[in-house]
Computed example of a mutant assay.
Amino acid sequence: LWLIAAVLGLTGWAWGARVLRAQTMSLRNRDFIQAARANGEPLHRVILVEMLPNLLAIIASSFVGTMTAAVLGLTTLAFIGVIPVSNLNWGTILFWAQQNNAFPDYWWWYVPAGLCIALLGVSLALINFG
């Protein structure tokens, strides 16, 4: 499970980093940053006091989006059988429902897991929008 978490973490950071870098480069040329530099403020104060409050919304939304993608990625990997089926998660529930031909007759095998995945995705998207 640590290997899968490491792979998802290593492959999931690039989008958020690109967006954060672009916003940081945009902030770098704003007047209030230039004024802080002209006043002789140290670099750590410019970063922590001037730039970081303007970047918090992007950092939070990037974190929530990456977390959503990681949960859905793990669920997908479990459903297609890449990770061990002894681990209990929503993907393995759907995997076993599919392996035991539960679709569409035994809806109570797959509907709760599907609803939980959908509700988690919607709730994280609503947190991101908020």
Rank of each mutant, 00 (worst) to 15 (best):
L20W: 11
L1Q: 07
I4Y: 13
L55M: 15
G40Q: 15
L48I: 14
W2P: 13
F79C: 00
C116K: 02
L74K: 04
W2K: 13
A17L: 09
V46L: 08
V82S: 02
L120C: 00
L120T: 00
A6Q: 05
W96A: 01
I33P: 01
D105R: 14
I93P: 04
L56G: 12
A57S: 14
Q98I: 08
R45C: 10
F79R: 07
L1D: 09
R28Q: 10
W13A: 11
M25W: 12
L20P: 10
Y110S: 12
V49Y: 10
G9F: 09
F129V: 10
V19M: 15
L56Q: 14
T66H: 12
G16L: 10
G121P: 13
G91E: 05
F95N: 07
A97S: 08
A38K: 09
T76R: 07
N54S: 15
C116H: 00
V71H: 06
G91L: 02
G114D: 05
T11E: 04
A35H: 02
T66G: 15
N29R: 13
F95T: 00
W13G: 10
G73P: 08
N87T: 02
W107K: 04
Q34K: 08
G12N: 08
P112M: 00
G16D: 03
W90R: 00
V85F: 05
G73I: 03
I83V: 06
L77F: 13
Q34S: 05
S123Y: 02
S123F: 05
I47R: 13
F63C: 13
T11L: 09
A60Y: 10
D105H: 09
Q23M: 12
P42T: 15
I58L: 15
V122F: 15
R21V: 07
M67L: 07
E41H: 14
G65I: 06
V46Q: 07
L3N: 08
A6H: 01
A113Q: 01
I33M: 02
W96S: 04
M25Q: 15
W96P: 00
P112A: 03
M51Y: 08
G81L: 13
L126A: 05
R18E: 10
L124V: 08
A22F: 06
I59D: 08
L94F: 11
A70F: 03
A60P: 01
A5H: 03
I117L: 04
G91I: 07
L119P: 06
L52W: 14
F95M: 01
L94H: 03
C116I: 02
V19F: 14
F79A: 05
N29F: 09
D105K: 11
F63N: 08
A5L: 13
I80M: 05
L10E: 00
V82P: 00
F79P: 02
D105G: 09
A70Q: 05
P104V: 06
A5G: 04
P84H: 10
I117A: 03
F95L: 06
V111W: 02
I59R: 10
A78E: 07
Q98W: 14
V82T: 03
W96L: 03
G114T: 11
A17M: 11
R28T: 09
Y106V: 07
M51T: 11
I83E: 01
L52T: 04
G12E: 05
Y106H: 13
T75D: 06
A57W: 04
T76H: 09
G91D: 04
